[in-house]
Amino acid sequence: MSADGWEWDETLYAGSATHYAAGRMPYPSILAEAVRSALGLDGRGRLLDVGCGPGSSTLLLAPLFETALGVDADADADMLAEAARRADWVGAINIEWRRLRAEELPADLGTFRVVTFAQSFHWMDQDLVADRVRGMLDPDGAWVHIHASTHRGVDGDDPLPHPRPPWDRIDELVAGYLGPVRRAGQGRLPAGTRSGEEEVMRRAGFTGPTRLDVGGGQIVGRTVDEVAAAVFSLSSSAPHLFGDRLPAFQAELHELLTRSSDSGRFAERTREIDVVIWYPGSTRP
Rank of each mutant, 00 (worst) to 15 (best):
A130P: 11
A68V: 03
H240F: 14
G217K: 05
T116N: 01
A22K: 05
Y177F: 15
A84G: 13
G53F: 00
A81D: 11
I30G: 04
G176Y: 02
S37C: 06
W8C: 01
L100R: 09
D131Q: 15
R182M: 15
G156E: 00
A130S: 13
F121Y: 09
G45D: 03
V174G: 07
P165H: 01
H254T: 15
G264Y: 03
S149H: 11
R46Y: 10
P139G: 04
D244C: 02
V227Y: 13
L253C: 04
R164Q: 03
R183C: 12
G179D: 12
V231Q: 12
P139F: 03
Q119C: 11
E66N: 03
R164L: 07
A73V: 06
G55T: 05
D262Q: 04
W278C: 07
G156V: 06
R269Q: 15
E172T: 14
W8Y: 12
R132H: 13
V90E: 08
Y279L: 10
D138N: 02
G205P: 12
N94K: 04
P54C: 13
V224G: 12
L128E: 08
G243R: 15
H147A: 15
P26F: 00
P239F: 05
R203C: 09
A77N: 11
Y20G: 05
E252T: 07
D108Q: 11
M136C: 02
T283G: 04
